[in-house]
Design a protein around this nucleic acid. Sequence first.
DNA 1: ACCTGAACACCGTTCAAGT
DNA 2: ACCTGAACACCGTTCAAGT
Lengths: 230, 230
Amino acid sequence: MCQDGGVAPSRSGRSQRRTDALSRERIVEAAVDLLDAAGESGLTFRVLTERLATGPGAIYWHVANKGELLTAATDAVVDAALAAEPTGSPQDRIRALASNLFDAIDEHPWVAAQLSGSSWQATAPRVLEAVGRQVGALGVPEAAWFTVTSVLVQYIFGAASQEAANADVLADRTEFLDTIATAWSGLDPERYPFIRTVANQLRDHDDREEFLAGIDLILSGITAQYPPAG
Amino acid sequence: MCQDGGVAPSRSGRSQRRTDALSRERIVEAAVDLLDAAGESGLTFRVLTERLATGPGAIYWHVANKGELLTAATDAVVDAALAAEPTGSPQDRIRALASNLFDAIDEHPWVAAQLSGSSWQATAPRVLEAVGRQVGALGVPEAAWFTVTSVLVQYIFGAASQEAANADVLADRTEFLDTIATAWSGLDPERYPFIRTVANQLRDHDDREEFLAGIDLILSGITAQYPPAG
DNA sequence: ACCTGAACACCGTTCAAGT
DNA sequence: ACCTGAACACCGTTCAAGT
């Protein structure tokens, strides 16, 4: 709880450790930990104050309210995912960016719900910037930059969100897919002919692979609609 | 409120048989109303019991907990959006389905957050079935049905969710876009060259049009990767 | 400036009791 | 079977008071 590990020798009998003074950064870090451990309902001010060994008022000094804390936590995760500069062809870079974002949401499933809420406002510019640059490099005409970039970003977060929705439900991946596939196989064939046909494809598919296949499909569409100048 | 002894013979306008008895259906209906009116935080058991003139225990008799209620409400909205059978070419039908889902989330923004949570489990089969049938009709080989359908559905919900995120923040659409565009124009040009270039495209864009352009882009990709048998 | 901690209004949920 | 309503544990947030 209050491990000190402090470098500074202090005149403390019962004084607060200055080394781990509370800060916005430390609060956000703890929030991410709690969210990772137990999902959105795992982040409460009581648990947070206990973890940080303070009172609620201390946290409110650094953070306006729970919403802002959630936004800051989301921001931290997305920023980390965008930190690595991708290399290679524009296509390769788009795949790498998409991969990193997908993995980040997979590891922090609570981010998905945030991004379809008001936290999106704060995060959008950085994500659009990172993807948009590569769209420009792809040779897409400037008039279509925004549209094309939006499609990619919306797909990335749509796919990652559904991945997160699944991750929420069951930890064991293959067992989970098996359960769903079996459930789907049992649906009324009159009403769900497509689902039944496809149930077995679900059984041994790889989410990440499927996701990247989707990126490639969209990249194909971009090339088809905006062929590289030649 | 208006407690109405039996089945009143109605004569004019919409005939609405009112029964006093509480029912799951009536509860879900009220929940959707509350969510529409004030978002996710607008749905509380207190407001709900008041609206339905009962106690919490009565609601718990019909519904297991708040989560189940939220899932049921989400289901109701999505089902309504899928109710209309689309007509025309497979492409037209996919556009129509996408439009209907987009509009449904635009009208009920709280649905977006639900679909990236556990409610997705319950809703997925119907959505996939509706879209998947058209993918089959498109001439896509069966081995790719699931992948292609997933891409479309993930894009639809990704785009709709971000639309919902925006809708949450401000009611007035054009004023909102203007605010964002202005904010974007003010970003550091060193770090956000793409965003700045694109800020003006944002100013007079139409969300729905943009969304449908995205659908067309993906349809292009499908045709490029799986050309119709000649 | 930064932090404490009791207090407040509100939340989802339960349950003995009524019909 | 269906409903009532008081009660419970917990939540985000505030604020007078301390350093």
